[in-house]
Amino acid sequence: MKRSKLINLTMPVFFALFGLWILFTSRNMGKLEGTFPRMVGVLTFIVALFQLYFDVRLEDHKDKFRGCNLRKVIEALVAMSLYVFMLNKIGYLLDTALIAFYIMHSLGYRKYGLAVPIAVAFSLGAFFVFKILLGVPLPTILLDF
């Protein structure tokens, strides 16, 4: 089977399994709270099978990930997840400055003399608006007031 077809089939297969999973997990729910998830599960499974049938029959499959920079996208998602994970550990200011710098750097901004102060300025600017003006308790190590 072609790589492009295989990639395209993952979507309906995922939804078919997802529909079955919804049905499976809703089996212990009562009549009132379980009816709606069961309806959703059945609908998901049936439509996913339809989609799978059409995708299997389709001959001309385009590779949806061809030409895109998937590695960079995954890298960005990992960086964002790390940002969330580290927030309470290193504090908002440092964490945000780091992610802002990472975004600029990884998108190809190479003027480091400007990138660092810009990243710090974004972090301080957002801190000022949210923590000082709006009173949002952003996690901080320093400047905890």
């Binding site: 940002y83 969330v84 908002y92 992610i99 600029m104 957002a126 949002v136």
Partner: peptide, 26 residues
């Protein structure tokens, strides 16, 4: 590139500010 960094900073901080919970950033 600078705009993208600004947007992400606001996205993340805005999600946190919704209920002061890092879970919402996730």
């Amino acid at each position: 590139q600078i705009l993208a960094a600004a947007v992400l900073t606001l996205c993340m901080t805005g999600s946190y500010a919704y209920m002061n919970n890092p879970f919402h950033m996730g």
